[in-house]
Simulated scan of single mutants.
Amino acid sequence: MTAAPADLLIDRPTVSDGAALWRLAKDSKTLDLNSSYSYLLWCRDFAGTSAVARGADGEPVGFVTGYVRPDRPRTLLVWQVAVDLAQRGRGVAAALLDGLTARLVAERGIAEVETTISPGNTASERLFTSYAARHGANVSRAVLFPAGLFPDGPHDPEVLYHIGPLTPRTAH
């Protein structure tokens, strides 16, 4: 498991973090930016399946949002991961992902992680393949949403990364 840098705290998000998560997503320049309202709702309704990294001032400097799939209650779908530019290269994203999944293996018995990644997003590809390697889990890839399914103009396909199985031993 990747430890968070000593000056950061991995925590659950609160509604008051919603604006900061929206700004982090916006500033990432790679994530699909959702409405600010959606980040507020996310911090209210999915705080238990998400995590934030807080700086010394308590403000979020990174986050991972996710939810447990209703039809697969042992599968965590990671929706977005973002880290403030000044914090990149310090292992924050890996620590967030490791901390969140360790918590959810213990609390909810999750056994798999899924995420989608657009081709060419090498930072996310590295994050999730290294996560699988650290935890001795298999990773498979398949196109989940072809580009033609997106109604709002040109969009790259979304490739599903399926990682598992996770166990209490491999998630820590």
Rank of each mutant, 00 (worst) to 15 (best):
R69A: 09
D7T: 06
S28Q: 08
L41Y: 03
G55Y: 08
F128M: 03
E114V: 11
G91T: 13
E112I: 09
L31A: 04
A132M: 08
G148A: 13
Q80C: 06
D27H: 00
A20F: 13
H155T: 12
K26H: 04
P146H: 15
V61P: 00
G164A: 13
G153W: 10
D71E: 09
S36I: 15
I110V: 01
L31W: 07
R23S: 10
R141M: 03
A133Y: 05
L24P: 02
S35T: 14
D17Q: 10
R169S: 15
R103K: 15
I10M: 09
A51I: 11
N121R: 02
R72C: 13
D17N: 14
D156N: 06
V139E: 07
V105G: 09
S124E: 07
P151G: 14
F128D: 00
A95G: 00
D71V: 14
D11L: 00
A133F: 11
F63D: 00
V83D: 00
R23M: 03
S35A: 15
T14A: 10
A106H: 05
M1I: 09
A147R: 11
A137C: 14
S36D: 12
S16Q: 14
W42K: 06
P119C: 04
E107K: 03
F63R: 01
N121V: 11
T122F: 03
S50G: 04
D27Q: 00
P146R: 13
L96Q: 05
R88Q: 06
V92M: 07
S38V: 13
T75P: 09
D17F: 07
A6Y: 01
V143F: 10
A47S: 03
T116S: 15
H172G: 13
Y67P: 00
P70H: 00
L97I: 14
A123N: 06
Y161N: 12
F150M: 11
S28D: 05
L77M: 10
V78E: 02
A3V: 08
H155E: 12
